[in-house]
């Protein structure tokens, strides 16, 4: 495993937050790979599991704050799917916590960076990062 973190970022919240983090030169681990999606609700279990199949160490789904989703319940659906994937991963022996759903507002750059850093620390502890 090379230890990438794949982040599915909602184009209305987490994606601009990631851009803004870069603009502010807030450094975060360079093993992050952002995939832009129109709404966190677009993320399906197959996308998350495929990332693990291709060697990712962790997957983040980042959507809008609860109650602020432009598509009403997209972030809530994403959370359900992430929970389901977490359960599947536990069954195949990947310990819990490798997949996470977080709410990030478009201006919450520090929160974005903190989430990425925390996930990176977590996978470092399990010795699977490069």
């Amino acid at each position: 495993m090379r230890g990438e973190i794949v982040a599915f970022c909602c184009e209305r919240s987490a994606y601009p937050a990631a851009d803004l983090a870069g603009k502010g030169k807030l450094c975060y681990p360079d093993n992050l790979r952002v995939i832009r999606i129109p709404c966190a609700g677009r993320v399906d279990a197959i996308h998350i599991l495929k990332a693990f199949e291709k060697g990712a160490a962790a997957v983040l789904v980042l959507g809008c704050e609860d109650g602020a989703c432009h598509h009403i319940t997209g972030n809530i659906r994403a959370r359900e799917r992430v929970r389901y994937c977490d359960m599947l991963l536990k069954e195949v022996g990947l310990d819990g916590g490798r997949v996470g759903m977080f709410n990030v507002a478009p201006n919450e750059t520090h929160k974005f960076v903190r989430i990425v850093n925390e996930m990176n620390e977590k996978i470092k502890e399990s010795g699977e990062t490069k």
Binding site: D19, G22, L26, C27
Partner: peptide, 22 residues
Amino acid sequence: ANIREQCAWAHEGDVTEKALEL
């Protein structure tokens, strides 16, 4: 491929590999 905000500006050191991957 967003190799400025989410790559060159967000990391320190040589990130050419990441840019190529993006």
